[in-house]
Design a protein around this nucleic acid. Sequence first.
DNA 1: GGCACCGGGCTCTGCCATAGGT
DNA 2: ACCTATGGCAGAGCCCGGTGCC
Length: 378
Amino acid sequence: MASRLKAFISLHRSTLQQPFKCITVQSLLRFYSVTPSKNDPKASKNPENESLLENLDLLGVDVKMVRRRQPGVLCRGFTNEQGLAQFLQSKGASRQTVASIISRYPRAITRSPDHLKQRWQLWKNILQTDTEIVGILERSPESFFRSSNNGNLEKNIAYLSSLGLSNKDLNRLIGTAPRTFSNSLELNKQMVQFLEDVCVELGGTDPKEFAKMIISRNHYILIRSTKRVRANIDYMRTTPKLSDAELLALLQGPGVKILDLSNEYLKNNITCLQGRLLALGCCQEDVKNLIIGYPMALYIRATTLSTKLDCFIKGGITMKQILEKPKVLDYGMENLTARLEELCGVSYDFKTNGIGILDLSRKRFVAKMGKLVNSTDE
DNA sequence: GGCACCGGGCTCTGCCATAGGT
DNA sequence: ACCTATGGCAGAGCCCGGTGCC
């Protein structure tokens, strides 16, 4: 009993900073009611808190999932599941959402009311409405709840703002890669420093602006490891043999997304793309130019890209034309196939007209087709 | 009006490993 | 011995429209 009481008090000190203002009678009772029997060695090892299990069940939480993910939480004497549920519901989350959040990130119920209030308020500094926050929590409960360090979150917000990122950027950052804000401040600083170093290394003149631009154009960058980004940059330097200036330009443009890819995936895609192009009679320079002109080619899975190339060639388009207008590779297979069929129907001649028509938005393509059909009718 | 160029919007979690704390 | 906090990983594109030049 004494050790549990000690644990209870220490929990108050460590995670709450100040004692709960609303410790319920039930929670206290529950805390003391689950002391394991000394006669039962099995129970003393990992005793699950019976009343907590009941509470979770009442909330509709998937206890099996909790047990699989964070079993330790079920053994805690004091938790805040009811407070959390009330809190989230007051912010507009449905009962189902609350249950799903706890099921997927059980440790959420160990966060105190004050902690929750404070963290929410910090997120509110970036996001305008509770609904937006609920939406993110629904998607990724772990991002919000994984860290108990609100001070770190506060510092992160201040730090990222200090980089000169706009409110819109911060908004997008928390919306698309919420984990960024749960990173330690140090980790975020490391990535920023790394990006600045890369800029200098590649002969760039404004490292701060470079780092800011990368983050603003690739909202996932801060949740990648510097090791991964480093390996990808190094690989791009050696295999398509990009010069420093070329690589710098690539990273400041659409190529920045390539940094996200896992090293093996990128390597494989480059190798396959190279093999395919060489087999089609292209030279190394063509490979390099394609990557510079359309770096997203490396984002597409090797098999998909290969299928796309087949599709174009079968449709009467030459590799030379694709190299001149690689953006056509951007479109989905389904869309491309349908367009090629439609164009075949009006005997569209790619040789004289080029392939620009394949790189149009749906609206523009439909309008263009309308005119083509009319002109063939006349 | 037609075209090329360009950049932006949407979107991305859930699990595992491990250091460190108690 | 157990739990928490945190870092890291795999996963794998498509579409739209503004702008400016002709």
